[in-house]
Amino acid sequence: MKHAKARTVAALALVLLASGCSQPKEEKRAFEVPDSLCGTPVPAELLSPVLPASGTKIEEERKPGKGYFSCRVVVDGTTVLTADWNWTEKGRTPRSVAYDNPYLDIAEHEGGGGKYVYSSTGGVSRVTCDPVVAHRKGKYELFARVFVSDGEKSAPAMEKLITTYAEALSASSECEQK
């Protein structure tokens, strides 16, 4: 009887070991993480944590307009990240801009002395344009926003992404004196 129990335990251990080895391997990214976010320079190491861990194809769908820009980052046909910026009447706060979309909760934390807000799903930052673009006549401010569509990410990763994106926008043609 002792040997029968030992054989049963050994057989069970082999079955469990074999089933553990036959788990499907986690897919890896087949796409290269870009070093820009919708045409604005952002290091790939800041984008990587907010993009899916797997997928085969990454694309950007850009929608420029007068005084605004919107872009969706799409992986395998699914929107995973949105980045946009727009000129807003002076006097708004990043928190009030974040609440323009009631379906997003991207104002959980505040940083930079009130310059930006962020959460594990996105962030909003005021973009410093010095001097203010002449055609805006000091009546408007530029705000940048990023948010993920495929669940929560790391709040510190989102903070780094929104601040880097806003800083890069401050050096863009949208902020240059015209």
Rank of each mutant, 00 (worst) to 15 (best):
R7A: 15
S22T: 14
D150E: 05
P131Q: 04
E60T: 13
L17W: 10
A171W: 03
N101S: 09
S172P: 01
G114V: 12
K2V: 14
V73A: 08
A6F: 07
V146G: 04
A83S: 13
P156A: 03
P52Y: 05
T128A: 12
A166T: 02
T128M: 08
S96N: 08
Y103C: 07
S70E: 04
G123F: 14
A166E: 02
H109L: 07
R95I: 10
C129W: 02
G122D: 08
A30R: 13
T79K: 14
Y165F: 07
C21N: 09
S172L: 02
R29K: 14
P43Q: 00
L16A: 14
E32V: 11
G122M: 14
A155K: 08
Y140P: 00
A171P: 01
G114P: 11
E89H: 07
R145G: 03
A168Q: 05
T79G: 08
N86K: 06
L17V: 11
V74A: 06
G114K: 12
P41I: 03
C38A: 05
A13M: 11
A144V: 03
G55M: 15
A53I: 02
T93F: 14
A166H: 03
T88S: 10
K28H: 07
L17G: 15
L81P: 02
S36P: 00
V148E: 03
E59I: 04
D35Y: 02
K25T: 10
K90T: 12
E60W: 05
P41Q: 07
V127G: 08
L46Q: 00
V117N: 10
T79Q: 11
Y99R: 15
V33Y: 08
Y68M: 06
P43E: 04
M158F: 05
G77Q: 08
Y103S: 15
S120E: 13
T82R: 14
P156F: 05
Y140K: 06
G91W: 09
K178Q: 07
E59V: 11
S120M: 04
P41M: 07
A6G: 02
Y165P: 00
Y140F: 10
E141D: 11
V74W: 07
A53S: 12
W87Y: 15
I58G: 12
T82Y: 12
I162D: 01
A166F: 05
V132M: 12
F143P: 04
Y165M: 00
L47E: 02
A155D: 03
Q23R: 10
H135G: 03
T82V: 15
T88W: 08
V148S: 09
P52M: 09
G67L: 03
H3Y: 15
S70Q: 05
A10M: 10
Y68P: 02
G65W: 06
V15G: 07
R62K: 14
K90S: 15
L47P: 01
V146Q: 02
Y165S: 01
T93S: 15
F143W: 11
P24R: 08
I162V: 06
E174D: 09
V9G: 05
S172T: 01
R72E: 13
L46N: 00
E141V: 00
I106V: 15
T121W: 10
A134F: 11
T40F: 06
S125V: 04
S70Y: 01
R95D: 15
T163L: 01
K25I: 09
V75I: 06
L47V: 00
E152V: 10
G114T: 13
E27H: 04
Y99L: 14
M1K: 14
V74K: 08
T164A: 11
G65P: 04
R29T: 12
L142Y: 11
A168V: 08
